[in-house]
Design a protein around this nucleic acid. Structure first.
Length: 439
RNA sequence: GGGGGCGUGGUGUAGCGGUUAACAUGCGGCCCUGUCAAGGCCGAGAUCGCGGGUUCGAACCCCGUCGCUCCCGCCA
């Protein structure tokens, strides 16, 4: 017999079914036994009259919560039952795996242990409705993005994560042993997706792992995370990149809302708002004026930049004024941007770059890239980047490279803002941080 | 890496100089009931992170240490 998802039992009233799931609650009474069984689609009450088979009743009595069970029985409509107005009358029970007791913590308790403690028992933590929903949303979200890209003639690439030399900065690289020499874990697919532009791929995307050796202890940093990267050719400015990005996000929000909107409202108490395009745009200079206007004191060393508090203050201003959860901060000074960001023709101190702030959190950085060999080399030298270290990269621009640009986005950060989850550790299957390598 | 906060039964908390260290939840037992993420009674379970110190006396005060956490730096 095929397994019936618990969420669809309503369509099987009067039938014999097989369900497979975890024992959530056992109410073991004198005459009757009630089991609440849960799978990833829902919960159902299973009823059993003890006298109909005393030895089976004994077996049921010994069950522990969170044990994995296979149950067959008849689905009956029963309006009295508070859980869905139906129940299963148990016929057979197979204990696939008896859970040890007590559990390290109760995944369905009123209070939850700290994120850190739950991380030790992540497979139990992931059984929670909230966790499950986050990863259902993640699946839809990634699918929607791929749909969008494929519809718009993008190509998917998979760039290597083991590299022979540093790609961008260098300081935040994990070093590893590669046979008899050193190698590094990729901190970004940046250079490789630009290589795809030089290769004539024209529009590419990559969803893949990114490694950062940053000893950051915040609720939004990880040492390994999934990066969503995109790069497109023949652009006029960074605005072309921003237009694709906002359309991509609008499409993605739309799809997630269609598929999970109701459950998100139920579980996270959040009405998912499909963002209007175009997203508000403010230049870095304007951002500073806005902060001054709302009375936010930016630390003096933050000239030409924003700090997290400033980003939140700006997001609040945009939310109040334009009722928008997203805001692009554009035209960042060259001092706070890497050498490969293109500069404005009419202002050599400003880059053609942007950050996307979503509900006060930085989730995307993007730019038009400098594709002119000489200019690129000059900017690298100016930033103190040695030519030898990036020669392989500079070579991309030697034999005809189109003007291009793109962005990098954090998958888990997007989930955080989408679902209002305050800690990134909840939004990733398994968290990796400076102090967390297990499980 | 800098600064703040917190470490008490499995879990979440209370207690903040002298208490049989309390409560909730979970766990075990019993009772009751077509129950309903039930209810009632009983029970087990904590040398209060660790190491020093102050004191007649420390979970409580001080110092150190480790762990966690938040903010900042850095970023996605």
């Amino acid at each position: 017999m095929e397994t019936t998802p618990i969420g669809s039992l309503r369509q099987h009233i009067g039938e014999q079914v097989k369900i497979q799931g975890w024992l959530q609650v056992l109410r073991d009474q004198k005459k009757m036994q009630f089991l609440v069984v849960r799978d990833r689609t829902g919960m159902v009450q299973v009823a059993f009259w003890r006298q109909s088979d005393p030895s089976l009743a004994e077996q049921i009595s010994k069950l522990t919560t969170e044990s994995a069970l296979t149950i067959t029985g008849k689905v009956v409509d029963n309006p009295i039952v508070k859980l869905g107005g139906l129940e299963i009358q148990l016929e057979t029970l197979k204990v696939e795996s008896l859970a040890q007791s007590p559990l390290p913590f109760e995944p369905f308790g009123d209070t939850l242990p700290s994120t850190d403690f739950r991380s030790d028992w992540r497979y139990l933590d992931l059984r929670r409705t909230e966790s499950l929903l986050i990863f259902k949303v993640q699946t839809t979200l990634e699918m929607a993005m791929r749909e969008f890209w494929v519809k718009n003639d993008f190509m998917e690439i998979h760039s290597p994560k083991i590299m022979g030399s540093a790609s961008e900065g260098g300081a935040e690289l994990f070093e590893m042993t590669y046979f008899d020499r050193k190698a590094y874990l990729a901190q970004s697919p940046q250079f490789y997706k630009q290589m795809a532009m030089a290769a004539g791929f024209e529009k590419v995307f990559e969803i893949g792992p990114v490694f950062r050796a940053d000893p950051s202890f915040t609720a939004r940093h990880m040492t390994e995370f999934t990066g969503i990267d995109m790069e497109i050719s023949w652009i006029d400015s960074h605005d072309d990149v921003m237009r694709v990005l906002e359309n991509l996000l609008q499409y993605t929000y739309q799809r997630v809302k269609e598929v999970h909107g109701d459950q998100i409202k139920e579980v996270f108490h959040k009405e998912l708002i499909v963002p209007e395009v175009p997203f508000p745009r403010v230049t870095m200079a304007e951002a500073h004026e806005i902060l001054k206007e709302v009375g936010y004191q930016l630390p003096p060393e933050k000239k030409g930049d924003l700090d997290p508090g400033g980003e939140r203050a700006l997001a609040k201003y945009i939310k109040d004024k334009y009722n928008h959860e997203f805001v692009y901060v554009i035209d960042w000074p060259i001092t706070v941007r890497p050498f490969y960001h293109m500069r404005h023709e009419d202002n050599p101190h400003l880059t053609k770059s942007f950050d996307l702030i979503a509900s006060g959190l930085e989730i995307v950085t993007g730019a038009q890239r400098e594709h002119r060999y000489d200019v690129l080399l000059r900017q690298a030298k100016e930033k103190g980047v040695s030519q030898e270290s990036i020669q392989f990269y500079l070579d991309f621009f030697k034999y005809g490279c189109p003007p291009h640009g793109g962005f990098g986005m954090g998958l888990s950060r997007l989930l955080m803002v989408m679902l209002d989850v305050p800690n990134i550790r909840e939004c990733v299957f398994l968290f990796r941080g400076p102090n967390r390598l297990h499980p």
